[in-house]
Write a protein that binds this DNA or RNA. Structure first.
Lengths: 144, 144
DNA sequence: TCATGGTGTAATTACAATGATTACAAGTTT
DNA sequence: AAACTTGTAATCATTGTAATTACACCATGA
């Protein structure tokens, strides 16, 4: 299993919109950078729009960021593209036997541990802004 | 997406083996507690055995822990049942356009962030031992 | 020794999620 | 009106999961 690449593509889209200052960031343009189908990008743009991360209008080419890059964290993107359901990074097996001591209690014991682990991962994402990503890419490019 | 329930079932199996002191922990017995098919349990037991967490022998009913519960962490189980490939909790989209500044650099920029996030989650799992799980379940049971 | 019951493992099935693709309605611009 | 864009639904191939069946192989006890 792996967290869907929608997440990394979402980050890619936002980064590209921010750095593409002199062109128009249409779904086709973005798709050519991501190397996928424009419809895939439009679907993701719809999610990013719904999460109020970008502004897009039907018929009008190009998307813009809805906030400053310093105000968008990777956690926002992660939530926007819906790669992990709330509280469900880890699955619990269903219907363990309630007649058994372990079966009856295992879920209540494990769940808080799983939530703590998921939260630790998400905290890291909250600590990284789109601005940091954009700066890192600009830095890498300037060194070439 | 969600991390396979193999993980929670793996924890269930080990906990049950530890707490089932007066019976034999056969795959059928464990399956009835987990509420699944014995073959599913045997497959997981094979993984736990390979990771040196339990001792099972062909033809001989019952599994035993290969280590003390205090020496087994949830991270060991997580690795044993192979729910997440090394360094691959998050997928990177493949083949972004190398002719584009963003496409060329996005993977190198994002990867260390993803690894940091994955590591934070795994550190939590390393901090929880099977002993802690067993004790918590015993405590819950004693309160009833 | 042989019947019984266990583990180990492969094959099959059903199901869900993903990502690519096509198609088209609806909006905008010139 | 023509050309281009977004929004969205439908379809398809692929993949991973979990359940199930089947059977080879091993150990034990009558």
């Amino acid at each position: 299993m792996s967290i869907s690449s929608r997440f990394s593509v979402g980050i890619h889209i936002l980064t590209l919109i921010e750095l593409n200052t002199d062109g128009v960031s249409s779904s086709e343009f973005i798709a050519s950078s991501v190397n996928t189908n424009p419809a895939v990008i439009r679907k993701l743009m719809g999610m990013l729009k719904k999460a109020n991360l970008i502004v897009v209008q039907p018929g009008i080419a190009g998307a813009k960021l809805a906030k400053k890059p310093s105000e968008i964290t990777l956690f926002d993107v992660y939530k926007a593209v819906n790669v992990v359901q709330e509280k469900e990074l880890f699955s619990l097996h269903e219907h363990p036997n309630p007649k058994c001591t372990v079966g009856k209690n295992i879920q209540n014991t494990i769940e808080p541990i799983f939530l703590t682990a998921q939260n630790a991962m998400e905290q890291v994402l909250k600590g990284v802004t789109l601005e940091a990503v954009v700066k890192d890419i600009s830095l890498k490019e300037s060194l070439i």
